[in-house]
């Protein structure tokens, strides 16, 4: 629920992985209150949930299980509460990953997570591509899928097509349906999904909190969206 000043509050899910500090700072910059938490009740109380993370998929899912957060995340998403997955948190939204064996994900979005190394053997220049991929890539409007022609009304609203974002990853997501794909990036010859939105569930492979002013727009958009949503829910009728 919104805090006393009326600002919406997000729960940043703490399962021991990732730079939660930078996510919290980006929230603060956007005027969002945030609580770093691993308590299921806090996720239900918050106006929105951010699932960050860096590291291994299987380990992350086991940790979410231990904290009782797997079912909570699935349920809060099903209840229509905005959920934002970032980097590993984005990959966890999908059905399964092949990182060091096959692991079931949260299954909030249909699709699989695959190895970048298998998919992008060589760059056009003939020099081998380095994995993990670490660095900036332009993100582009998905050419298939969404019926509208842009990012209006999504967390990417106002971000220019081709804006560079910061990525750190060895695996990438392949949604089962193109309609979920909001943006793509290109690694060597591989064009892959780097952002999805399905209802109030959003995810991105890149780190918006580490992507300069363009990345911070996602947090501004989230703050606006949560503010509007919270205001609608607090109406007396």
């Amino acid at each position: 629920m919104p805090d006393e000043a009326g600002r919406p509050c997000v729960a940043i899910v703490d399962y021991g992985l990732g730079n939660l500090f930078s996510v919290a700072q980006a929230c603060r910059h956007a005027g969002l209150d945030s609580a770093i938490t691993s308590a299921p009740d806090d996720l239900w109380r918050a106006d929105g949930v951010i699932l960050p993370g860096v590291g291994a998929f299987g380990h992350a899912m086991r940790t979410l299980d231990r904290l009782g957060l797997r079912s909570t995340l699935i349920e809060v998403a099903a209840a229509g509460k905005p959920v934002v997955g970032i980097c590993l948190g984005f990959q966890l939204l999908f059905s399964e990953s092949c990182e060091f064996g096959t692991h079931a994900g949260l299954g909030i979005v249909d699709g699989v997570v695959e190895n970048l190394r298998d998919a992008a053997p060589a760059a056009a220049t003939g020099r081998r591509l380095k994995v993990p991929h670490v660095g900036w890539l332009g993100i582009h409007r998905a050419s298939t899928g969404r019926s509208d022609d842009g990012w209006t009304g999504t967390l990417l609203a106002g971000v220019p097509d081709g804006a560079p974002m910061y990525f750190v990853h060895s695996f990438y997501a392949r949604p089962a349906r193109d309609t979920a794909t909001l943006a793509t990036a290109r690694f060597g010859e591989l064009a892959y999904c780097c952002a999805i939105q399905a209802g109030d569930v959003f995810g991105c492979q890149f780190h918006p909190e580490r992507s300069g002013a363009d990345g911070l727009r996602l947090y501004d958009n989230l703050a606006r969206h949560l503010g509007v949503k919270a205001a609608a829910q607090s109406l007396p009728w």
Binding site: W136, G138, P160, G162, A163, P164, G212, A213, D214
Partner: peptide, 11 residues
């Protein structure tokens, strides 16, 4: 190179 904040074409 990345040109900050998309002031210019980035790639």
């Amino acid at each position: 190179c990345r040109i900050a904040d998309s002031a210019e074409p980035a790639d």
